[in-house]
């Protein structure tokens, strides 16, 4: 494949990765920002979203469109409620101490994985996409001084992938509106900036925490529902999203939502583009080292506000 179309393809694939990553990571960033804890089980909420999406589409029976729509509405809410429950029963009791939260969320990770293994099983199962047309894309070629439009071999995307990118943008806009335009967003931001002060002003910090935790997990689940027609639901699928969104949150500057989204774009796109130039594993090595060096020279993240 020529370089131009190849680059185009890599960028589109990168955009898809970035879209899903931005959703997952903004959930983690929200939790991190408001509650100042690392939720190691975040990836498991993502996994749960995918697995529940499979259940829901199975229950809905024949129509993939209906099943998918149902999953899109129901699953994030279910996962969010579960997360809020975890927050109220466990995290609250350990006082959101950073280290204890790590141990407790590792425990929750084990529990969620094992329960999924016992009920859903070890197989990777696919969910039918509601629509999935292959769209071949044209490319412009310059030869003998004239421009020519042609359809390069292999340059294509599917309508569903485009939908995922679009949906991610809409959801992220919604989240931005929620945080900046609503009272709930105001309360969350107040809690994020100063917990003590928020308490003093009578903000129900405890309830805000539960909502933030549930919302964060719900974002991860939503990302999973969107991706599951492309990647399959599997009980160990939570590891990578956790690692990547963790990286994105830090690179973006702790708890900063816009930062996280920009970082997701950067990581998703670079993942796609670097793979053009190097052998794949070498590309991954460079990509990881790149993240490390960004932080070494910008320790507060690329768009960090100063608070470590």
């Amino acid at each position: 494949m020529d370089f131009g179309p190849y680059l185009m393809l890599a960028i589109m694939e990168g955009a898809l990765t970035a879209a899903v990553l931005a959703l997952t990571a903004s959930g983690l960033a929200l939790v991190f920002g408001v509650m100042r804890v690392v939720n190691v089980a975040h990836g498991e909420f993502f996994m749960l979203g995918a697995v529940l999406a499979w259940w829901v589409t199975q229950l809905a029976g024949g129509s993939p469109v209906l099943g998918f729509l149902l999953a899109l509405c129901v699953v994030p809410v279910l996962v969010g409620m579960l997360a809020a429950f975890v927050d109220m029963t466990i995290l609250k009791r350990i006082n959101y101490d950073p280290e204890r939260t790590i141990v407790a969320t590792i425990g929750i990770l084990y529990i969620l994985q094992q329960v999924t293994l016992m009920t859903y099983g070890p197989e990777a199962r696919p969910v039918a996409p509601p629509f999935n047309a292959r769209i071949a894309l044209p490319w412009i070629d310059m030869s003998d001084g004239t421009l020519r439009l042609y359809w390069p071999w292999g340059l294509s995307i599917t309508s569903y992938k485009l939908f995922v990118i679009g949906a991610a943008c809409v959801v992220l806009l919604g989240l931005w509106a929620l945080m900046t335009k609503t009272k709930l967003g105001l309360l969350m931001r107040a809690t994020e900036q100063d917990r003590e002060m928020a308490l003093a002003f009578g903000i129900p910090v405890q309830r805000i925490y539960a909502i933030a935790f549930g919302l964060g997990a719900g974002m991860a689940a939503l990302a999973a529902v969107l991706i599951v027609p492309i990647q399959q639901a599997h009980y160990l699928m939570g590891g990578d999203p956790l690692l990547l969104s963790f990286i994105v949150v830090i690179i973006g500057g702790l708890g900063s939502l816009p930062g996280a989204i920009l970082a997701a774009l950067l990581i998703g796109l670079s993942d796609g583009i670097i793979s053009i130039f190097f052998s794949p594993t070498l590309a991954k090595i460079f990509a990881t080292l790149f993240v490390a060096f960004v932080l070494v020279f910008r320790p507060k993240g690329l768009w960090g506000t100063g608070k470590p």
């Binding site: 393809l9 694939e13 898809l16 292999g154 796609g272 793979s275 052998s279 794949p280």
Partner: peptide, 20 residues
């Protein structure tokens, strides 16, 4: 020879390396 890293979850970006 197209070697895919073991942690990979999306593959389209490697396929252009397949010779015509």
């Amino acid at each position: 020879h197209i070697a895919i890293p073991p942690t990979e979850t999306s593959f389209t970006k490697y396929f252009p390396k397949i010779p015509r």
